[in-house]
Design a protein around this nucleic acid. Structure first.
Lengths: 154, 154
DNA sequence: GGCCTTATTATGAATAAATCAAAATAAGGC
DNA sequence: GCCTTATTTTGATTTATTCATAATAAGGCC
C-alpha cells in the first residue's frame, strides 16, 4: 500500500536524497518536500497549510525548521522577493530565474535568457568569486495587463 | 554660508528633483538623500544614524517614512537582499546590479554584463511585460576568500 | 513678512516573518 | 526491541516594518 499523500516513487526519491545529505527520513520532511513540489513558490504559511492535510498538528515553527534545513542541504531553493515572505521550490541546480507580477504578485519560473547562464559572468565583480546569480524580473502579467484598474469600477 | 552637512550644489540638485516629483523640500528628506548618497547600500538603521549627525532627534519611523516615499518617487532604489533588511541607494535608472559576499554580507555595485540590459529579454516570460530585472550575484569577496575560516583560529 | 492650507513628520502602538532555547519525541543502527 | 542522537515541538523572543493619529512646518498668497 502506498503512503498517504505522495506516490511511493516520489517518496522514495526524497528519501534517497535525504539520506544522501545525511538526514533522517521523517514524515515531516517528506510532507514538506511534497507540498513544495506540488505548490512551487509557496510561502511558509501555505506550505504549513498543505502539510496539515496529512499532518494536522504540525506547527508553523516546525515547518520553518524543516524548510530552513532543507534549504541548507540544497534540496529546496528559497526565493525572497520584495514585499513578500520567503518562498520555496524544489527546482534546484538548473539556473532558472523568476518573474513576479507587480499587479497580483504571482511568480513564474523563467529560464535563463541565453541558456548557459550569461548572468554568471558579469563585467566587474570587484574580485568576487560568483557562485549564484539570482535574477528577478518584475512586470505586469497578461491577466493584470488586461484589467489594469479592475478594482476601480469607477 | 553653506548648509550644515551637504554641499549647496547637491542640496540644490535634491531640492529640484523633489519639486519635480511634487514633493516639498524638507530638511529630513535632504538629510536622508545625503546620507544614502554618501553611504550606498545602507540599511534603515544606518541611514537613521547618519541622519542623526545633523538631525539628532529624528526617529527611525520618520526615516522609514521618508525612505519609503523617496523610493516610490524613484529618487531612491530599494534593494532587498536575503538575510538582510532592505538597503537603499541613490543610483537609479542605470540598470546596474548587485553582488553580495556570502562571507561578510558586503554589497557592491555591478554593471550589467553585456551593457545593454541583456537580462531584460528573457526567453519566456509567460506573457509578462517586463519592466525591471534585478540581478543579485552571490559569492565570496576577495577579502573573505583570503581568510576562509579566520574566525576558527583552531 | 505673516497667514493659511495641506503635506509632512513625530509618536506610540501594532504587525508579520523568522529565529531561538529547552523539552519531548522518534529514526535508524545495533 | 533498545539506545543514541537527530529531529520536532513548544512557547517566547527578536527584528524589520507599517499603521493611525496628533503635531508641525513648507510654500503659495496677500
Amino acid at each position: 500500500m502506498t503512503s498517504t499523500a505522495a506516490s511511493a516513487a516520489t517518496t522514495d526519491k526524497w528519501s534517497a536524497q535525504l539520506r544522501a545529505h545525511g538526514r533522517r527520513v521523517t514524515k515531516q520532511r517528506l510532507a514538506v518536500l511534497d507540498a513544495v513540489d506540488h505548490s512551487p513558490h509557496a510561502v511558509a504559511d501555505e506550505v504549513a497549510a498543505i502539510v496539515r492535510t496529512t499532518l494536522p498538528d504540525i506547527s508553523l515553527q516546525s515547518v520553518y525548521v524543516v524548510l530552513t534545513d532543507l534549504t541548507e542541504t540544497g534540496m529546496l531553493r528559497r526565493i525572497e522577493p520584495p514585499h513578500s515572505p520567503a518562498r520555496y521550490e524544489t527546482r534546484v541546480d538548473d539556473n532558472h530565474h523568476h518573474a513576479m507580477c507587480t499587479g497580483c504578485g504571482r511568480i513564474e519560473d523563467v529560464d535563463c535568457a541565453v541558456g548557459h547562464a550569461p548572468c554568471l559572468t558579469p563585467s566587474n565583480t570587484h574580485g568576487m568569486t560568483i557562485q549564484i546569480a539570482d535574477v528577478l524580473y518584475q512586470g505586469l502579467c497578461a491577466d493584470c495587463a488586461a484589467k489594469p484598474a479592475a478594482d476601480k469600477t469607477s
